[in-house]
Nucleic acid binder design. Structure first.
Lengths: 151, 151
DNA sequence: ACTGAAAGTCGTTGCAT
DNA sequence: ATGCAACGACTTTCAGT
């Protein structure tokens, strides 16, 4: 089970995924070897899923964020699976959740500009059977973007 | 400016933020020193914002994801700033975007369970002046979660 | 800008507790 | 589970192109 040492390790790694093992060990007050073994065990068990560099989309010409609410026309398995499989394969879709409420799915899409978004919709979403409604909400501002949650 | 070498470096770092500089250099076909300087320059300029370990919320008792749509009663600066400042300070709120469309904001909140979400709403959101409507959409499933976008 | 080499630091394993 | 010690691997800097 995960104990307080693990939690402290995770809290730090969420904020700095590239901290050296030695520094990490020092901060959580363990020997380097003990700390290292704990991190490896959590990578193995999937508690730590992966490490990522987080980039600035605006500096990389991917500055348009769109939040989409999608409704399917019927809630059968075929439409749902087709939609989810498509979504997983689209590199513009960074996040997708199946939701309770009016909309069936929420998507976050990251594209360079409106022209690219237009293409994205026409080529990838409107071509899908069973997509009844798509509401596009454009991000005026990113108020907060955090990957770290409470542990 | 960012060139093709930088792009290749970024693509790899998005997927594996803990790759060693040596491996990275080998994969992009640069010497270790050249690769290292490019990475440092991109960290300096903010193209690389930070490195993060991505964890599994379900294994850490933070398994309830909620997508909130929030409307303010008036669109003046005071209400908006109060809301945004509050949101930035709440560790349960991992993402928040100011949006076009009916809702003014979309929030993604990560909590352990419904009881915690109830507390979150009552303590942090309903206490704010100027919040006219809050629609909570609970995530049934995480279809996709990606931090990497096209470069 | 780049490479190659040098020096210092770190990761990783084996062993003992 | 842990710490210590050793070795190989890696990061980082610097001189030279």
């Amino acid at each position: 089970m995960i104990d307080q040492y693990d939690r402290r390790i995770l809290r730090i790694l969420q904020q700095d995924g590239r901290i050296t093992n030695q520094q990490l060990a020092q901060q959580v007050d363990l020997s380097a070897a003990a700390c290292w073994r704990r991190v490896k065990a959590m990578e193995e068990s999937g508690v730590i899923q992966r490490y990522a560099a987080l980039l600035d989309p605006r500096q990389l010409e991917q500055g348009l964020t769109v939040v989409l609410m999608v409704q399917l026309s019927q809630h059968n398995r075929a439409y749902r699976d087709a939609f989810e499989t498509r979504v997983k394969g689209l590199s513009e879709v960074l996040q997708c959740y199946a939701l309770t409420g009016n909309a069936d799915f929420m998507l976050r899409v990251q594209v360079p500009d409106m022209a690219a978004y237009d293409r994205f919709l026409n080529d990838n979403l409107f071509t899908l059977e069973g997509v009844a409604q798509v509401q596009s909400n454009f991000a005026l501002r990113e108020v907060k973007y955090e990957t770290a949650f409470d542990i």
